[in-house]
Design a protein around this nucleic acid. Structure first.
Lengths: 174, 174
DNA sequence: ACATCGGTAGTCAAGTATTGACTACCTGCC
DNA sequence: GGCAGGTAGTCAATACTTGACTACCGATGT
């Protein structure tokens, strides 16, 4: 993960959001993120990457170490907790719609998952997201391409419409 | 790119398909693959990666060097051409539908692009692809998930339906 | 008493991938 | 003749990922 000045990558959000739920430790975060696990079915990460990500988040002061805790089942754990700044970032992130359809599978699903886990209403996010996707669809409907560009535009349009339909059904179901 | 025994990666197919169109040289392949270029708007690759990919394809005897040619505009070029085996692989690849919806944006679009550039009829590929996507949609419609798995399944289903609609419109337009 | 098995907790060196920056070549122009 | 700009190709350094490792702990069997 490159040293972007501000923005976090998908995996960094996943780890930060998990720590923000409750103070925890690296191994537990990694367990939630194993492929097919609680969070891992949306975004999977391997253990070494989770620990490295926690280091990065600690450097950026979104997460901090809060001492060690003896474990009943193994060696002592290093407990981590979210900082003020970290909590603010997570709260804002969860409500912010994704800008591109291609980010929906990873980022939007993660936001929805963490809203669900926190028993928060997804409607505000979904409403904002529908507006964004509808705007993208309108743009794509407006362009008149020729040749192969038309094929690509058609693919994008159908995918964008699928995203709109998904959001609408989520709103209806909620 | 890992040393898979047989199967090629998306970028390898793009490079091989370009060489199969006509004998060419690395720089020209790289030019077609720059982000936003002829082929690059579907799948972009940077120059060093193109040359490395050509080495890999040469090792696998899908491509071979065919001497050097003086250039009117710069240093001499190393001309590359497809081998028998390479041509067979490309011809088969272009007609084979992708197995997963997630591969459509990269692989299916590339197949369609190269069929288009070769002025070949995309209908056989599209028909097979529609069948595959419809089968996936039927599977997804059958499962009855609960909780967040339902959200994920809904996302996948809407995306699969979008893929079916895309293929149907391509068939109608063709 | 103690060996060892399996799950927990965390780290690291080595292998791969990717890129920015580089060399070198050629033409045309000032 | 020298230098700007496009062509042709390569490489060393960086970034990323993973397999394999250490170490800890309780439980189980002997």
């Amino acid at each position: 993960m490159r040293r972007r000045p501000e923005q976090l990558a998908t995996g960094e959000w996943a780890v930060l959001a998990l720590v923000a739920e409750a103070p925890t430790h690296g191994f537990a975060v990694a367990r939630a993120l194993v492929s097919g696990g609680e969070v891992g079915r949306v975004w999977a990460m391997r253990r070494p990457l989770v620990y490295r990500t926690l280091d990065v988040l600690t450097e950026r002061e979104l997460v901090r170490a809060a001492g060690t805790e003896p474990s009943e089942t193994g060696p002592p754990r290093t407990v981590l907790e979210v900082t003020e700044a970290g909590r603010e970032r997570v709260d804002a992130w969860r409500l912010e719609p994704v800008q591109h359809v291609r980010d929906a599978r990873a980022d939007l699903m993660l936001k929805l998952l963490f809203l669900d886990r926190a028993k928060l209403d997804p409607a505000p996010l979904l409403t904002a997201q529908r507006e964004r996707f509808e705007a993208i669809a309108a743009e794509l409907e407006a362009v008149e391409d020729e040749g192969f560009a038309r094929t690509l535009a058609l693919w994008r349009l159908e995918n964008t419409r699928a995203a709109v339909r998904f959001v609408e059904q989520m709103l209806r179901a909620g």
